[in-house]
Design a binder for these strands. Structure first.
Length: 889
DNA sequence: GCAATCACG
DNA sequence: ACGTACGTGATTGCG
């Protein structure tokens, strides 16, 4: 008996591409989609032994369907180049496997399949159609079975008219009506808005077809009736779009579809060329295998056998049983701001099996055990960016605890300059099976789109699988680099504390902030009017280009500095120009107020959560190369303080409960104290042991005067030198900062080093050290690599040298405040205090404190901060408090 | 998406 | 002779 298999080529290769990790052959050509397609094909041949077979492909870009509806398939992402490149490989391989391929101008693969299946039907031949597209179900008939692929590409579900009736209680023809009503986002078929599968099925069971439904709207009521009547045309058009065309002018005959089995002498070399060793073995063609290269083959096998299940509600019980052995997870969420993220789903991995749980399922009552496990701190979990996962889940009402190993955080410690490697980067780095890039699966930017469940689930489950392997390798590396303690006892505990602080948020008085905005607005409009009047023209004050034109061309002011693109108009330049023209002062004022308005009033207002009335920043623990935190959405580490106008912004940061106060404590001169400790400079240590004003002391030592002889200018200069020292000093930098000649700056530095010889020795030694090892470390063994320390290019090398001097100082200070945060969190917990840590600003911690804890906190906080780490000089933290952040100064 | 500017430590 | 201070993030304009 003849048996024909019709394969939807485009659909299958597309799914294979996303279901498979991105295998490449030794030539660097990606082959994963071809591999996936071929495994499926071989399985079909083995199981169904077809006598005839074709693979149908879409031809060209425009199909006749576009003529009726130009948005058809408009929502679809562009095919990634890694996939398009594999089409020729597949076509070539199919030829060598002896599988006929059809491609007909202006028709899609499903039209070809529809036409052949109609002809075969009429001739009474047995047909099987293979696709991942449910639309194909409309072609099922007495002789025609539709095999829908699921779970990657190797498993299929067979549908005849009987099975369709069981599942949907519809005939194959009614599948078209179903899609006409519900639409299909991936093909941009609109359907009727608000009608999904359930509603569509109900309507069809009642009325039989789209036409029947539209004629029968009289029997319906409410919203449903309105929607159907309003979108009647859409429904009719959608049905038309969903109908597979079965009258393609085919010139092929039955004989053109004959499949005679795979012939070794063409298939062998073709498979060998693609380096599909496991497939050669399967076909007993190993003789054709290329010279062995163990790794590639191993990766291929591993990738092919990854055991992934996309969990449905009735499979939750099995998952619950596996929970104790699950050690890795990946929470897939969207967007940059985790406080606003939507959770898409969760991948879960044991060593052997991998699961994907869609978020909708996770929310159902049936998933209670899984949610308990997620929130169980005794269930240790590895993951990527667990801090983000924690927040995203939190705002959906799901608790997260038990973070044991965050691979993103570990990767940051292992190399903080290798900015935020994603899971695919890390998998590649450790020689693990690679993942599809997120961009390929989701699209990027405005094109972000969640793919269908099969693709999504495979991708996310592969991520949790990758976490397992990565965590293992990292643990070894952390031991080798002596950072296990830093990781387990500092950074991992801190990530949970940060999440707590962010969830808590800080209250902002919205009314006061808006008031402040009005004041700024009035000042701005006054300044703008004056500036335009003086300049005699209106222009965009915010455009440095237009401003430069006015200042340097129209008003003829001297050009002080240039940027890459034109005149520089920054504050430093404007200060120098101020004596020449009155308008410059006004422009400086405008800049100040406009900055406050746009960034701090408007910017902050946008970030107030409607849910909590607070702002919830997001601290990033894996950004700064020195070990510092950074803060985003909004950045609460750069709220103005230096100028009084801006400092007022701090008044709107208030306690979130009545009767509470803001308590803040900041380290006094932490970086110079750290420098005194690590350099061991006796004179500098002396200054801190006696708790002297370090800048005055420096002025005394450098200028050789007594304390009462130090004037404000001398202190200012000394302060600048101290800053310069911390930054990795250069005479040029200091000369710029103090606005003095370079020679003079060089003299200052020389005098400084004469007195602080221990500091000079440290600066020299640390650079030598960096050259020798290629990295520098902090007191807690945090590491930063400086590959450019040996560069021939003077600039690059100098930069690396300054970094070598600065990073141990800035980084140790970061270590210390992080330690203080962990200790403080513990102290609050153990004493059962209600006070809450809210913010960290590099050397400052901000709390909100109830009245009855104030006295205690005022001593506890500086004690804990001062005692965070034992140095050869005391660490000092100064507290202050008030009814808002401004008052706590 | 980058450059310029400016807020913080 | 070389040409810059160390570490961040947000806003705006512009090609």
């Amino acid at each position: 008996m003849d048996k024909l298999i019709l394969i939807d080529g485009n659909n299958i290769i597309y799914r294979a591409f996303f279901a498979m990790p991105p295998l490449t052959n030794t030539a660097g050509q990606q082959t994963n989609a071809v591999y996936g397609f071929t495994t499926m094909l071989l399985r079909l041949i083995e199981e169904h032994k077809p006598t005839h077979m074709i693979v149908a492909f879409d031809a060209g870009k425009v199909t006749f369907r576009h003529e009726g509806y130009e948005d058809y398939k408009g929502g679809r992402q562009k095919t990634p180049p890694e996939l398009s490149e594999q089409f020729p490989l597949l076509k070539d391989l199919l030829r060598n496997l002896g599988v006929p391929q059809f491609e007909i101008g202006n028709y899609e693969a499903d039209d070809i399949i529809g036409t052949i299946s109609r002809q075969a039907d009429e001739a009474g031949r047995q047909v099987m159609i293979v696709s991942g597209d449910k639309d194909m179900l409309q072609l099922a008939s007495e002789h025609t079975t539709v095999a829908l692929i699921r779970k990657g590409v190797t498993e299929v579900e067979l549908y005849g008219p009987e099975q369709i009736r069981e599942k949907y209680d519809l005939t194959p023809e009614q599948i078209i009506d179903l899609k006409g009503l519900m639409g299909d986002a991936s093909d941009n078929i609109p359907g009727v808005p608000g009608v999904g599968e359930k509603t569509a099925l109900k309507l069809l069971h009642q009325f039989g077809s789209v036409e029947g439904v539209l004629a029968g709207t009289g029997e319906l009521k409410g919203k449903m009736k309105e929607k159907l009547e309003a979108h009647a045309e859409d429904a009719v058009m959608s049905k038309k779009l969903a109908t597979i065309y079965r009258e393609v002018p085919l010139e092929h005959s039955w004989e053109d579809m004959i499949f005679n089995g795979i012939s070794a002498d063409t298939a062998g070399p073709a498979l060998a060329k693609l380096e599909f060793k496991s497939l050669l073995e399967r076909l007993s063609l190993s003789a054709y295998a290329p010279v062995a290269d163990g790794e590639e083959g191993a990766a291929e096998v591993e990738a092919a056998t990854l055991d992934i299940s996309i969990v449905s509600e009735d499979e939750l019980e099995a998952l619950n049983e596996a929970l104790p052995s699950i050690s890795a997870l990946h929470v897939e969420s969207n967007g940059d701001n985790p406080h606003r993220a939507e959770v898409i789903g969760v991948g879960l991995s044991t060593l052997e099996r991998h699961y994907y749980v869609p978020f909708e399922l996770l929310q159902k009552p049936a998933a209670a055990k899984l949610r308990d496990w997620l929130g169980d701190e005794k269930a240790p979990k590895s993951g990527y960016d667990l801090h983000r996962a924690d927040l995203a889940l939190h705002w959906q009402g799901i608790a997260f605890a038990g973070a044991a190993h965050d691979v993103q955080l570990a990767a940051y410690l292992l190399d903080p300059t290798e900015a935020n490697q994603n899971l695919n980067d890390l998998a590649t780095k450790y020689g693990l099976p690679r993942l599809s890039p997120d961009e390929d699966v989701f699209g990027k930017g405005a094109k972000y789109k969640i793919p269908e469940l099969e693709i999504l689930g495979n991708h996310v489950a592969r991520k949790s699988a990758a976490v397992l392997g990565i965590a293992q390798k990292q643990q070894q590396e952390l031991i080798e680099t002596a950072m296990t303690g830093l990781f387990e006892d500092l950074e991992m505990p801190l990530s949970r504390i940060l999440a707590d602080m962010e969830k808590q948020g800080i209250a902002v008085n919205e009314g006061d902030l808006k008031e402040l905005g009005k004041e700024f607005e009035a000042q701005i409009s006054k300044l703008v009017t004056e500036i335009y009047e003086i300049c005699g023209t209106e222009f965009n004050l915010n455009s440095p280009k237009q401003l430069g034109e006015i200042l340097f061309v129209k008003l003829g002011l001297p050009v002080v500095k240039k940027t890459k693109t034109g005149y520089s108009t920054d504050a430093e330049v404007l200060e120098k120009l101020a004596p020449y023209h009155d308008v410059v002062r006004l422009i400086l004022q405008y800049r100040t107020i406009a900055k406050l308005q746009s960034t701090y009033v408007e910017g902050l207002l946008k970030e107030i959560s409607p849910k909590t009335g607070k702002v919830h920043t997001f601290y990033r623990q894996t950004i700064a190369a020195t070990g510092r935190l950074s803060s985003q959405f909004p950045n609460l580490q750069n709220i103005p303080i230096r100028l009084e106008e801006g400092r007022k912004i701090r008044k709107v940061f208030v306690p979130s409960e009545p009767g509470w106060s803001i308590l803040a404590a900041d380290y006094s001169q932490i970086e110079l104290r750290v420098l005194a400790h690590i350099s061991g400079d006796e004179r500098m240590k002396e200054a801190f042991l006696h708790d002297m004003d370090i800048h005055t002391k420096t002025a005394m030592d450098v200028f050789g005067v007594t304390a009462d002889q130090v004037d404000s200018n001398m202190r200012r200069a000394a302060k600048a030198v101290n800053f310069g020292i911390v930054y990795g000093i250069s005479d040029y930098g200091l000369s710029q900062n103090l606005n003095i000649p370079r020679k003079e700056a060089a003299q200052f530095i020389e005098q400084y080093f004469e007195v602080y010889q221990g500091v000079r020795r440290y600066m020299d030694d640390i650079v030598v050290d960096a050259r020798k090892h290629g990295y520098v470390t902090t007191l807690l063994e945090r590491r930063r690599y400086l590959p450019e320390i040996n560069a021939k290019n003077f600039n690059l090398r100098s930069f690396a040298e300054r970094t070598a001097m600065n990073t141990p100082i800035q980084g140790t200070a970061a270590d210390i405040i992080k330690l203080a945060m962990v200790h403080m969190d513990k102290a609050l917990f153990e004493r059962g205090l209600k006070s809450r840590m809210l913010l960290q600003v590099h050397d400052e911690l901000v709390f909100e404190v109830p009245e009855d804890e104030m006295e205690l906190m005022k001593t506890l906080l500086p004690e804990v901060m001062g005692g965070a780490l034992q140095l050869s000089v005391p660490l000092k933290a100064e507290v202050s408090f008030g009814s808002n952040w401004y008052e706590a100064k």
